[in-house]
Design a protein around this nucleic acid. Structure first.
Lengths: 164, 164
DNA sequence: GTTATTGCAAATGATTTGCACAAGG
DNA sequence: CCTTGTGCAAATCATTTGCAATAAC
């Protein structure tokens, strides 16, 4: 993981006169070890594997801190539980496409769309702050050949398919 | 209200061999009497004013039916409760801008953005189905003059400001 | 030492559900 | 009639919170 993220978090924690704890460190490390989206429960289970007495409460509380610190973002990809995205540090303005066939989530960036959105925002009399695009789409391969490569890939990798 | 919507709902209900009831009729009428976004609780309170023994359960169940029928859409404008938007029949591809100063929600349509999104979707190997843009923006007037016209308008009209 | 943090279990709050009675067709 | 809908209250489920014990600084 990029140790720099941990540093940034600890600066944030210090600035708020909060405390650096082993639990917070390990949760932050666990989150930014991958670039995968996750729910609180998934993260909790991940943490539990290495620390048998970690608590859900601390996981929830640390996630909130990370969101306040601007290091983590809640995203909307459907589902009952909130989903978090650790990739906004690398790609500050990316968006999400969700495949309605397999649930796969694809991240993408598009400068032109960002620009157009800013125009619309100003035309409406507002100052652009943040924008996000949510696309639901079907798999083209599935329609043409009856095979969804993402679904296959998902099966192979054992990745959980998000129920919508 | 456009009685045609009620008709469409009742066709849907019949197709599923469900039943047309006075409660469903009155809930559908209540929703499409305005073009305002609402939460289940707000709708329930609205219904309660005219029908003292209406139940939350039926409101929730009817909302679900309307969403399945494609007549109502859940939208994401933050907040803990789900928000529903009855305006997709008139504007099938509109988006939402939320003012971070006053919580006002502005609907807008933009064909160019829709087109660009479709391009991106195809480039990624998917078939466009549905897309939505969520913009958070600050009030330009507030920054320049210290006055947010929406906030004023909201106060005057007594409209509830969504907490975020 | 003083203040913040943790883990637990209990609380919360929106939404869902089981069930007995009522209503639609 | 027979089946689906309603209203009520209880259940659910993710998330939050109070609190006593523990760890930072």
């Amino acid at each position: 993981m990029d140790e720099q993220i941990l540093e940034r978090f600890n600066e944030f924690v210090k600035r708020r006169s909060l405390r650096r704890t082993t639990q917070r460190d390990s949760i932050v490390r666990s989150i930014f070890a991958k670039d995968e989206h996750f729910t609180s429960e998934e993260l909790f289970e991940r943490i539990r594997r290495t620390d048998k007495r970690a608590s859900r409460a601390t996981v929830y509380r640390t996630i909130s801190l990370l969101v306040e610190a601007g290091l983590l973002r809640e995203i909307d990809i459907g589902g009952e539980e909130k989903t978090y995205d650790p990739n906004f540090l690398d790609k500050p303005s990316h968006n999400h496409l969700v495949c309605i066939d397999c649930g796969k989530v694809v991240e993408f960036e598009d400068l032109n769309i960002d620009l157009l959105n800013d125009c619309v925002t100003r035309r409406l009399g507002f100052r652009p702050m943040r924008q996000s695009i949510h696309i639901e789409a079907g798999c083209e391969q599935l329609r043409l050949k009856g095979i969804c490569p993402n679904l296959l890939a998902t099966r192979l990798s054992g990745k959980r398919i998000k129920k919508r």
